[in-house]
Amino acid sequence: MIFEHLRPLAVIDNPQGLRDLLVIELLYATGARVSELVGLNLEDVDYDRRLLRVTGKGSKQRMVPYGLPAAEALDLWIRAGRGQLANESSATALLLNSRGRRLGVRQVYALVAKLLEGTPTGSAGPHSLRHSAATHLLDGGADLRAVQEFLGHSSLGTTQIYTHVSVERLKDSYKNAHPRA
């Protein structure tokens, strides 16, 4: 898994490192699009229920859960990182750049490419984390309609693209494990 290679970021004692870790964790945990991620505000986070209110295409909003690693990265960012970058232009943006403004889409693409460079995934963009989240949900037995809702797809056909990878893994598992394969 790529996250073992990214974990050293958690010990970086600068706000950008904490923010970068959060970006990676949230992209994978929520399957959010980059535009959805950078559009998050502080009030979009339900800390108690570990949910994000994400605004997707067509200004449609959905609630997306996130797990414990993302919750820990979020807590670390809020406690030790965001305040160091925040200023009067920060408003309520969750993710901030080094100037205290809302983090931009291009910045996320660049930082994800940089962070994934030395991992088994290799150079990849944020969409690869969205793809991984969807594939792992399906591999774990999640219902296709639930994954559709999770990703904010308006069409089930768009979500079905991810089933191809899961079917290939199923075939491999069958060949390796079934005595009559």
Rank of each mutant, 00 (worst) to 15 (best):
L95D: 10
V112I: 13
S128T: 14
G125F: 03
R50P: 02
L138I: 14
E168M: 09
F150R: 03
G67E: 06
D20I: 11
A181R: 13
D48C: 00
R7W: 09
L40R: 02
T158I: 02
E72F: 02
H164V: 06
G152W: 03
L151S: 03
H136G: 03
R130D: 08
G152F: 03
G157S: 14
G140D: 04
D75I: 01
Y66M: 00
S128E: 12
G104V: 04
A86Y: 07
Q107H: 11
E4T: 15
L116I: 00
T119F: 03
L103K: 01
Q107C: 15
T119E: 08
R33Y: 09
L52F: 07
A134W: 05
R50W: 06
L51S: 04
T92D: 09
L42H: 07
R50H: 08
L74A: 08
R62T: 06
T121K: 14
S90E: 08
E4W: 06
R82N: 06
R101A: 10
Q148D: 04
I78M: 15
Q84M: 08
P65N: 14
Q61L: 05
L40Y: 10
E36I: 05
G67K: 06
I78Q: 11
L85T: 07
S123H: 15
D20C: 02
A80V: 00
G157H: 03
L138F: 09
E25C: 09
L51F: 14
L9S: 06
K57D: 11
D13T: 11
L18S: 06
M1I: 10
S59V: 04
H136D: 15
G122V: 02
G58R: 02
R145C: 05
P179A: 07
R145E: 05
V147D: 03
L85G: 04
S35L: 03
R50N: 10
A93F: 02
Q84R: 13
L144Q: 12
L18A: 10
L6T: 13
S89Q: 13
D139A: 14
L151Y: 01
L111I: 15
R101N: 12
H136A: 10
I78W: 01
G81A: 09
R49N: 12
S90T: 12
D75T: 15
A86C: 01
L52Y: 07
F3G: 04
K57E: 10
V38T: 12
A110D: 13
I78H: 02
S89W: 09
G83M: 07
G141L: 07
K114N: 13
L156Q: 10
E149T: 08
